[in-house]
Nucleic acid binder design. Sequence first.
DNA 1: TATGAATGAGCCTTCATTCAT
DNA 2: AATGAATGAAGGCTCATTCAT
Lengths: 240, 240, 240, 240
Amino acid sequence: MFQTLIVAVLAMISPSNEQELDTHQRLIEAAARMFVEQGFGSAKVRDIVARAGANIAAVNYHFGSKEGLYAAVIQYHSAQAIAELSQHAGDDGVRGPEACLRDYVCTFLQRLLTDTPQFTMSKLVAREMVDPTAAFGLIIEKFIWPQYQALHAIVRSIVGAKPSDELVRRCCLSVVGQCLYYQFARQVVARLDPEFGYGPADVERLAEHIVAFSLGGIHQSARTRTGDAQQSSCGDVDGR
Amino acid sequence: MFQTLIVAVLAMISPSNEQELDTHQRLIEAAARMFVEQGFGSAKVRDIVARAGANIAAVNYHFGSKEGLYAAVIQYHSAQAIAELSQHAGDDGVRGPEACLRDYVCTFLQRLLTDTPQFTMSKLVAREMVDPTAAFGLIIEKFIWPQYQALHAIVRSIVGAKPSDELVRRCCLSVVGQCLYYQFARQVVARLDPEFGYGPADVERLAEHIVAFSLGGIHQSARTRTGDAQQSSCGDVDGR
Amino acid sequence: MFQTLIVAVLAMISPSNEQELDTHQRLIEAAARMFVEQGFGSAKVRDIVARAGANIAAVNYHFGSKEGLYAAVIQYHSAQAIAELSQHAGDDGVRGPEACLRDYVCTFLQRLLTDTPQFTMSKLVAREMVDPTAAFGLIIEKFIWPQYQALHAIVRSIVGAKPSDELVRRCCLSVVGQCLYYQFARQVVARLDPEFGYGPADVERLAEHIVAFSLGGIHQSARTRTGDAQQSSCGDVDGR
Amino acid sequence: MFQTLIVAVLAMISPSNEQELDTHQRLIEAAARMFVEQGFGSAKVRDIVARAGANIAAVNYHFGSKEGLYAAVIQYHSAQAIAELSQHAGDDGVRGPEACLRDYVCTFLQRLLTDTPQFTMSKLVAREMVDPTAAFGLIIEKFIWPQYQALHAIVRSIVGAKPSDELVRRCCLSVVGQCLYYQFARQVVARLDPEFGYGPADVERLAEHIVAFSLGGIHQSARTRTGDAQQSSCGDVDGR
DNA sequence: TATGAATGAGCCTTCATTCAT
DNA sequence: AATGAATGAAGGCTCATTCAT
């Protein structure tokens, strides 16, 4: 009890001093790193507890099972990431929606590509996408959906009054698709575009590109939507 | 490697002996399904050989190890996918570059989202991205790079003469990012956009959107590039 | 041991402090139920303390170890059962020895088959028989031997003066064997004789049977004993 | 395959040479010993495989799990015991039913108290009685019921025409109760009757006693049954 | 005195791989 | 060439016990 309090206080004073965190928290952080690096299946409890300086039985004691630990990691980092985002969620009002989009993309990319709770979450989400676990529903509700909603509002403003929902959805996914690709396909980007080094300057220029590209894309999509379906030009593929 | 070749040659020479020789091929196909469904780590060789109707020792006998089998799967399906793509590599010439982009995106998305060798490969690539193996370099060289090059040429044509390489690269990745998101994040899309059902009609309309969005984006990016860096508006993040 | 005594004395001195002191007793009772239901090995101290509303460390604190708790349970319930028996130890005197036997069997069976301290003990004894612990000697001395002695006296009276010890011992064990079978082999009885439901009426009729059967058996044995060994008819087994 | 055959033949030639049995059989026999000695829960698969000279994974390979091995042990020894019994099941006809009872008890006791498959089974059954597993139903059907039926027929003959079923059942259970007590309560017998040493001569005299006692008991019970319920003399216990 | 977090030995099981045939 | 029984390292989890407070 008392010790816990002291530890908590120390954690506030010197949050870099991980040594002083309690076992519960140390396990979550060590596990987060391991799950990000190796995935749920490949991460070994023995390695996690070693990294956390805890006993092999600590995982079951604190979280019931390896899966329970995973869920705790998801919940903790999800909450952290959302809390962090909400600080910068202050949007429109005076600024126009395009400035909001610029802000959204810049923040999103910076968080996504540097070592923050959101970075951790995105890595875990990437793993969930190819190997979904029971925690996937939780992730979408608590982590993905709020972010998507914010973007949706911005895009809706840009497109203008009474947009068909589908158009907005398509544009939102086009925006996030561009961003996430740089996170998800880091290794591929490194080969296809060796000059992109994921440094702060790189990320800044990337954000500029995605904003410009997306604004152009959104406006073009809205225009196309107005003029309605030109000609379907995909139907002839594969011989049908 | 070498043995595989021998087997393939023998298969051509004596097709009557198919039953035995097919074990090799049956293993590759069964393994491809299992690796796509469960990933390399979670797929069990017992399940693979059961699905292939082969003996438990067949994997090590034919491929040396589970990893050898995985490499064989990558190589086989990569070759299949490339062969299939080259059939539709119909490029410019008479058509304008924008029509080529339309064709590229349509074909890419259709292959990506339906059960073809490329679909198999994309699933495996998605797994490689979060859990790279020794086969990843091979995949990029043989599977990803050729497709990227084709797109690069198209985008280069659209942007116009002497484009800075970076602009083209950025635009290419923006295009593929949009496409791959629908493959990679199927489960998320299903929740964020429940009306999108991955049916042929859905895919066709999606392709239309991505083409329009991307053309708008490319042109806007090119324009922005010309007028050059307006103001950097991301640098103040984290400091306000 | 010593500490237990102190606690008991304190309980008498300051009954207001019962809540805390009762932990000791609550543990014994919870443990008795668990040991009866699941056996020493399968019963978990976590479950026992949970059932007793005590702390996980309480077992080791009060009894030194799980085994210490088990010994305490044996001792406590053994004393309880013996105390209870001595109330009905009403023996011969005016009544004849056959009436005493009837009384003994009736009481024995009723205690054995209903939820009394003796019932608890018998269940534990059954477990000790297949998995003896260090407490087994104690059980025989304190719990089994007194009861056996009482029966021995009765049977000795029935058989008559100067019986060979062996005859009496044989008959005693024949009597208790019949009784204990219904306790020990409850599950088997339930299948071989589904009409026997272990209700009060069933037990009463069972007692009648065992008394009649045993009296017939004792008299016959005594007669046979007098006429001495007829012919040995078992020796040829395995060789025919 | 071939080796298995050779081993099987060798097993017939020199059944004492356990070394030559195949792993499957060696595991069953080693497991039987361990389960008899320590019970299902306390027996460790590591010890079993060590005793069988097999690998730790052999249990799961051959029997799926520890429980599967247990079931195999039950089935094997149950079949062995029944097969052995059926050789001596040749009963009545010329001999009277009382001679049959004598034969039954002699055989039963000898098998029960010496190291035969039935001995093994009885030990396991004793454990099942205090700690039933899923195999208990199997045991009753395959092992206990056949033996009970044989005794039932004999007792029915002794009691005479049209006996109430209950009387026969009661007498049967009185007979087996006497016998099983010596097996089940070995340790108690050793203390209450130290002169009984479980040697062949002891067993022979015990059989004589149980036969005489039981015949006297059965006849007395039948007589009592005819004269019907004398007076219920148990109802006054415990104050009702 | 009493707590509950922490410990570590040990258990059953899984699984890719090997070996004798 | 192909089989399948056998291997052994390693993994997650259980549980009685201990220790600092």
